[in-house]
Write a protein that binds this DNA or RNA. Sequence first.
DNA 1: CATGAATGAGGGTTCATTCAT
DNA 2: CATGAATGAACCCTCATTCAT
Lengths: 189, 189, 189, 189
Amino acid sequence: MGRKQAFTKSELLDQTKKLLIEHGYEGFHLKLLSGNLVGARSTIYQYYANKEEIVAACMKRAMENVLQKASAIGETDCMEALQQLLTVYLEEADFHQLLGDAHKINKANSSAAANDIEFVDQAHTTLKKQLERLFVLAQQEGHLNTSIPLPVVIGVFFNLIDTPNMMNIPTPQWSKLLFQMWLGGAGRR
Amino acid sequence: MGRKQAFTKSELLDQTKKLLIEHGYEGFHLKLLSGNLVGARSTIYQYYANKEEIVAACMKRAMENVLQKASAIGETDCMEALQQLLTVYLEEADFHQLLGDAHKINKANSSAAANDIEFVDQAHTTLKKQLERLFVLAQQEGHLNTSIPLPVVIGVFFNLIDTPNMMNIPTPQWSKLLFQMWLGGAGRR
Amino acid sequence: MGRKQAFTKSELLDQTKKLLIEHGYEGFHLKLLSGNLVGARSTIYQYYANKEEIVAACMKRAMENVLQKASAIGETDCMEALQQLLTVYLEEADFHQLLGDAHKINKANSSAAANDIEFVDQAHTTLKKQLERLFVLAQQEGHLNTSIPLPVVIGVFFNLIDTPNMMNIPTPQWSKLLFQMWLGGAGRR
Amino acid sequence: MGRKQAFTKSELLDQTKKLLIEHGYEGFHLKLLSGNLVGARSTIYQYYANKEEIVAACMKRAMENVLQKASAIGETDCMEALQQLLTVYLEEADFHQLLGDAHKINKANSSAAANDIEFVDQAHTTLKKQLERLFVLAQQEGHLNTSIPLPVVIGVFFNLIDTPNMMNIPTPQWSKLLFQMWLGGAGRR
DNA sequence: CATGAATGAGGGTTCATTCAT
DNA sequence: CATGAATGAACCCTCATTCAT
C-alpha cells in the first residue's frame, strides 16, 4: 500500500558514504544528500530520525562489510592472512577515512546513533585484535625485521591503505604490490 | 593613538592552522577562530576579506615554509636528499592533511584566495618535480628495486608522511625509522 | 468488501477533545491525533478536509451537548434553574476552556469550519441570553444583592466553572458547593 | 562601542509575555516575536540562547514582580492582607495563565531555562504558603463560613483572578468588588 | 582601527496535506 | 476506502558578514 518509495535505505546510505568522503563530516548536509537522491529533503526523515543517525548507520554498514570479510579470512598462514586482510581493507579503503569522524557524532541526540557508534567501536577493537594477533604470529615465526618496533610495523602497514592508487591498478594486484613493498622495501635487494 | 592592536596576522594564521588541523576545513568557523584569539570576530575582517582568504593564506604560508626548507636541500646524494626531504615533510606533517582541502575553497568569492591557492598548486608541482628528480636519480644509481613501478614507489614514500607516530618518537629518529622501513621493508633481511 | 473502517467520526472527535484539553489548540497535532486512534494519519482526511474543520466540528459537538442539556432546564424557579445550569456547565467544564480557543481557528481555510464556528458563536449567545434571563429574574425576585452590578454577578458565576476541583468532589455536590459559595459567600453568616 | 541595540531585553520580554498570553506556549514563535520587535529574528539570539530561555526568563520576571509585591504585604490583619493580595494578583492577572505552561518548557535544552523554572516553582510554593497562612488565620479568627472546606474557599478565591473584567472597572475597585462578592456572596444579605 | 550589535542566508527538523497503490 | 510514502512550508538555530559607534 501507499506510494512506492522514492529511494531505498541502501541508496540513501550509498550517497551518504560518497558525500561524507567527499565533504567530510562537517561538510555533509541533508540538502546535499537529498540533492543526490530523487526525493525531497524531508523524505529522508522517513528513514532516519536525524542527521546523526544517518551518518552512524552509514558507518555501521561500512564496518559490517569489513568485519564480515575480515572474519572470513583463515589465520593459519599469518603472512597470507595479512595479505588478504590488506586486500579487504583496500576494497573498502574509503571506509577508513569515514571512521575517523565517528567520534564527532553527537550521540546525545539519538540513541540509535549511539548504538551504531558503539557497534563500530567494538568492531574496531575486534579488527585491531585480529591484526595484532597476526603480527605477533608473524614476528614469532621470524617473518619480520626485529630491528623495527612492532607498533611502527603495524602503523606503516595500516597506513598503506591510504596510498593513492594513481595508476588505477586493479585492487588484487594493487594489494600484492603494496604488500610486497611493505615486506621487501623499495630498495634493491 | 587608537586602540591597541588586537592580534597580528601571524597569530591569526597560527590559530587558523591549528583549528584547520583539529576540525578540518568544513569544521573551521570564524567564531572558533576569534574564540582562540584576543579580539573580536569582526576584527578578523581588518586583515582578510572573508573566510576563504584566511584559509588560503594559511595554506600558502605553510607551503612557503616547506618550499623553503625543501629547496635548501642539496641534491648531490639523492638517497641522503630523500631522507632529508622526508624529515622536512614530517616536520610539517599536519600541513599535508591541510592541502587535501585546498580544492574545497570557493575561489569565486575572492581573487586573493584564488591567487594563494594558485601559488600552492604551483609549489606543489615544484615539490613533486624535486621528488621525481631524486627518484629518477635513485633508480639510475641502482638504489631501487626495479620490479616496482616508480610511481608506486613514490606514492608509498609520500604516504609515509601520514603514518601516525603513536609512540611519539622524535621527528629526526621517526624520519630515519620510516625511511629505513620504506627502503628495506618490514620483512627479515 | 474493502478494508475495515479504521475509526469512526465520533471516536475521532472524542480523541480530538481529549487532546485539545490536554495540549491546547496550538499544541494539537494531527500526528498526535492519529497516534491516539487505530488508523493512519491520512485516513483522517476521509472525514475532514483539514485540521481546522476537525477542531471546529469538535467544538460544535461539545456545544450541541451543552445546548441540549441547558435548553431542557425548566426556568420557572430561577434559582433552581441557575443551580441546574451550573451543574450542566460543570459536567462539560473542559469544554469551557476549549471555546476560548475558538477564535484562533483560521476560518479562511474552510467554509465548513467557518460554519461550525458560526454555530458555536450563535449557541454561545443563546446560552448567554438564557443566563441573563435567569439573572434578571433572580434580581427581580429579590434573590440578589443589589449593591453588585449584574454583569459582575454573572461574570463571577460563569467563572466558577473553571474552579479546580482539587478534592475531586463528585460533580452534583461540587455544583451545590460552588453555588452555595457564590450565593452566600465565603464569610461567616 | 558597536551599534546601538535594536531593542532591550525588557522590551523583548514584554512582547514575549504579550504573545504567550495571546497565543499560548505552543503558539509562541520567534518569528512572531521578532515581528513584534524592531529587529531581525536572529537578533533575538544576542539576548537568549534559545526559545526556552526566553519563555523561562519571561516567566521568572513575571513571578519576581508578583513575589515582590506580595512579600511587601503586612499580614497582621489577615482579611486586609487577603484583599491586598487579590489586588496584587489582579494587577498581574495574565501572569496566572502564563505559569500554567511553565512545565511545558523543555529544560533539557538549556540550563538557564531550567534554573529560571526552578525559581518559578520555588516562588510558587512561597506564594501558596502565604495564602494558606492567611486563610488559616482567617478561619481561626472566625471570618469564614465553617461549613465550606478550606481548600474550596481557597480555590474559589484564587479563581477570582481570572474573572473577566468586562466593564473595565479600575483594578483597585475591581479587586474590592470581587473580594466583597467572594466574602459576602451574590445573594441578598 | 577595534568593536559589539544586526542581519540574511542556509541547514535541521516537524507537520499538515497530497498522492498513488 | 485505507494507507504508507512524499513533500513544501514553516520553524529553530548558527554563522559569515556588514554596520555604526
